[in-house]
Design a protein around this nucleic acid. Structure first.
Length: 658
DNA sequence: ATAGGGTTAG
């Protein structure tokens, strides 16, 4: 083995491969290698040292180590060596060590910086949000006549994207045209498109794209994503279909795009097309698909994606993003147990995983679990963000935990340095309102330091419905009619509040407002998945279902049995001034009751009946289903527009508070 | 070297 290393060391340094030797001047070729060349030996030593320094830098894990090596760099006379210095900057960048002054120091010592060193600095500063420094380096570089490379511009455009400075971007864009050769550099152009798209100047991005003599997949994908982010899926789809050769990233951009733009069915459709065309998928694709399934909220899709994840051999425990997406999906598909299982097995958990899980618990009414998890994440050092607090506060709000909620709200700024946003205030108004402190909730809405939005007044209006307070409702509704004049739900809520207070004239007035605006009531709709796996829809008051006769029989039967144990239809849930008899008839054809009847007929007794609903459940349906879960001993899970109700044994997981 | 990813209130 010693022999082998000996063999390597005898390869002459000045060895010139044969195919190149003919290009060399004759003299050099014919000159015999002198037995000793002090200079080249020194060179040799120097390059040895250089590579030692480089590999030492590669092994660095802390700033101290880097500083030690830097000292060595200076000691050995490498303070002008761009190669080593570039490496140093890149390591600092990679390790996210703030280089506000450190890198500048390095830069100032170098007399003849090369483009790579300058570019590494620009990029490093940019990634640390020090865009001014990036631009400074660029101007220094122009002053010293260092010619930029493509990557210089790319880094600069990225920097402009970071600080939202389109003017600067435009300026530099101009320079790419002036400074030789970059006007047509595809890499530079792609970075430019990315910048414009990121800053919302989609038209400029498009112009750059259209003027390109040739484009690559990356230019196309960037623009597609631009349209996706702008919510224009039609243009995105058009571009995508024109794309001559599509790869996984482009496909994924479309799948994710549909998911992000609330078109989950299209997302799944694209995903299936993608599979059919034999395009590879990876975890990024899956995240988009999982998110689409979450939006559909059907257990069927949760199971479907579970199989896909398993068949593709992805381990959701490994990838924190996939795991977090799964937590959200399982929660939204009604199985907080599965969500927690997914959470439990994740190897790495971050603020997303915790926030999703907390929101999942909150959604299902497990406030204590949500709070416990919150404290756990704080304890193990994961810093909550503003989304986390939304979850925690909703959890408190849905469980009447006013004091805990208040404390957490106050701790946001004090302990975690997150100043509450409008949405947090709306959680607080909700928390107070649900607990019946309407005056205090109103006061908070009126005195909060931020401009209250629809969420704030909407929460208050909702609380007024729960506690039948038409006066405060009127205040909240007036704000809402201004902020969201076309949101039908607000008019309906207000009219219901007036109705339950018997203020029928006011009801008529609200109706008139709705008519004048041309707003029509959103019909109540529920759906469930049948035994055969078909989604069946039920509309309130709809008697045209083929099995309506049987369903009606079931409901009447249930009604009688429930009345026998003390249930009374809740007439307050009907906002029409009609006879009690008529109210009872309307109540019994609410869509969730129809779905429930169908579910009892169709679904085997061992399985829960899962119903989804487009609007909030009324009081009457809630107590009716509570009763049904008791007398039939069935588990019934209803998802309304914002949360889940698990009915079991006469009780609901929301504790009659939602 | 450049393109695609998860959590949010009434």
């Amino acid at each position: 083995m010693v022999h082998l290393s000996h063999k390597f060391s005898t390869i002459p340094i000045n060895f010139i491969p044969k195919q190149f030797s003919k290009h060399l001047p004759q003299q050099i070729q014919s000159q015999p290698t002198p037995p000793f060349i002090p200079f080249s030996q020194r060179q040799n030593q120097r390059s040895l040292l250089e590579s030692q320094l480089i590999s030492a830098l590669n092994c660095c894990t802390s700033l101290t180590q880097i500083q030690q090596i830097h000292a060595r760099v200076l000691r050995k006379g490498f303070e002008q060596c761009c190669y080593v210095l570039t490496k140093l900057i890149r390591i600092l960048t990679k390790m996210e060590i703030p280089m506000d002054s450190y890198a500048k120091l390095v830069f100032n010592q170098v007399e003849n910086p090369n483009p790579f060193l300058c570019t590494a600095l620009i990029r490093g500063y940019c990634l640390q949000g020090l865009v001014k420094e990036s631009v400074f380096v660029y101007s220094e570089m122009r002053k010293k006549s260092v010619l930029p490379i493509s990557f210089t511009f790319s880094a600069l455009f990225k920097a402009c994207g970071v600080v939202n400075d389109v003017d600067l971007g435009r300026q530099i864009h101009g320079q790419t045209i002036l400074i030789g050769g970059f006007g047509f550099d595809l890499f530079v152009k792609n970075s430019l498109i990315e910048m414009y798209v990121k800053l919302g100047f989609l038209g400029c991005g498009r112009k750059v794209f259209d003027e390109l003599p040739e484009r690559d997949l990356i230019s196309w994908t960037e623009l597609i994503v631009g349209y996706v982010k702008a919510g224009d899926m039609e243009s995105a789809g058009e571009l995508f279909s024109e794309l001559p050769k599509k790869d996984m990233v482009a496909w994924t951009a479309m799948v994710t795009g549909y998911a992000q733009n609330a078109k989950p069915r299209e997302a799944l459709e694209f995903f299936e097309r993608m599979l059919n065309e034999g395009v590879e998928t990876d975890e990024v694709t899956l995240v988009g698909v999982i998110s689409a399934c979450a939006q559909l909220g059907a257990a069927k899709y949760a199971n479907w994606i579970r199989d896909i994840v398993e068949n593709l051999g992805f381990s959701p425990t490994r990838c924190v993003v996939v795991g977090s997406a799964l937590i959200d999906m399982y929660s939204k598909c009604g199985s907080v147990e599965d969500a927690y299982k997914a959470f439990k097995v994740m190897e790495e958990k971050n603020v997303f995983s915790y926030s999703s899980m907390i929101a999942g618990f909150a959604m299902h009414g497990y406030a204590y679990a949500a709070l416990e998890l919150f404290h756990e994440m704080v304890k193990i050092g994961i810093k909550p963000n503003k989304v986390t607090f939304i979850g925690v506060l909703t959890a408190c709000s849905h469980s009447r935990m006013v004091e805990q909620g208040r404390q957490i709200f106050e701790s946001m700024e004090e302990k975690f340095g997150i100043s509450p946003g409008v949405d947090h205030y709306s959680c607080m108004v909700d928390l107070l309102g649900r607990a019946g402190c309407l005056e205090e909730a109103l006061n908070l809405a009126e005195t909060m330091p931020l401009e209250p939005n629809g969420g704030v007044w909407g929460a208050l209006l909702g609380a007024c419905r729960t506690y039948s307070n038409p006066d405060i409702a009127q205040i909240a509704a007036n704000h809402l009619f201004e902020l969201e004049p076309n949101a039908i739900g607000n008019y309906i809520l207000l009219s219901n509040i007036y109705a339950s207070a018997g203020r029928w004239n006011d009801v008529l007035m609200v109706r008139k407002m709705m008519r004048e605006k041309g707003l029509r009531k959103n019909p109540g709709c529920s759906w469930l998945e049948t035994k055969k796996g078909v989604i069946q829809e039920f509309f309130a008051g709809d008697m045209s279902h083929p099995r309506y006769g049987e369903m009606k029989q079931v409901l009447e039967d249930l009604l009688n049995r429930l009345k026998a144990i003390g249930y009374q239809p809740n007439m307050n849930s009907i906002a029409y001034d009609v006879s009690d008899e008529e109210k009872t008839r309307i109540l019994i054809t609410h869509s969730e009751k129809l779905a429930l009847a169908f579910g009892l007929l169709d679904i085997n007794a061992d399985f829960p009946i899962r119903i989804m609903k487009n609007i909030r459940m009324c009081e009457d349906c809630h107590s009716f289903i509570c009763g049904v879960s008791q007398i039939t001993r069935r588990v019934i899970i209803v998802r309304d527009n914002l949360r889940f109700h698990h009915f079991h044994d006469g009780k609901c997981s929301c504790g009659n508070f939602w």
